[in-house]
Simulated assay, not measured.
Amino acid sequence: MAEDQLLNFSGDTPDDVIVLGETDPELLQLNDTLATTISTILNTTVLPTSSFEPLLPYTPNPFRIGFLAVKCLLIVLLCAISCTIRRDFLKFFAICILIPLFLEAAFDVFTEIQAGTGIFGVQKLEWAYHMVEQPVNSTISDYPKHAIDIYGAILQQYSTYQLYTGDPLFALASFIIADFVFWSLLFSTVVAFYYAHKSIVRPERIVFEPFILSFLKAQLIPVLFTAVDTLLALHQVPGWVYSGAMVVVRLGACLVAVAIATQLFASLFLFCRSVDELSVTSPYEQIRNAKMRLFLLLLFTVVVHLLSAPYIAWAGISLVRDVMWLLSFDTTSLPLRIAAEAFPLHLTLFLIRPLVFLVASLFFLNPFRRRFVRLFCPCCRRK
Rank of each mutant, 00 (worst) to 15 (best):
I99T: 09
L56M: 12
V248E: 02
V207I: 14
Y284H: 14
Y164F: 15
W314Y: 11
S141L: 09
T23P: 01
V109G: 00
A257M: 03
T189I: 09
L90Q: 14
A227V: 15
D322R: 10
K291W: 05
Y164R: 01
Q5M: 12
L334M: 00
T13L: 12
L294Q: 08
A227P: 07
V207L: 11
A115G: 13
H346Q: 06
Q263F: 14
A315W: 12
F182L: 11
I41T: 06
G121Y: 01
L297R: 09
I41L: 14
H235S: 11
L345P: 02
L186Q: 04
G118K: 00
T23V: 15
A178T: 14
I140C: 01
Y284L: 09
F180S: 01
F102N: 09
K145Y: 10
I18M: 10
T23Q: 09
L42Y: 11
A315Q: 08
F187W: 15
E53I: 09
S318C: 03
P14A: 10
I113Q: 08
D4K: 15
A2C: 03
S214G: 05
F265W: 12
L296K: 12
Q134K: 15
F211E: 03
P48M: 03
I312F: 13
T36M: 10
N61E: 02
A339T: 00
R288S: 11
S274D: 11
L103I: 07
N31C: 09
L327R: 09
S333C: 07
I200N: 05
P168C: 04
L55I: 08
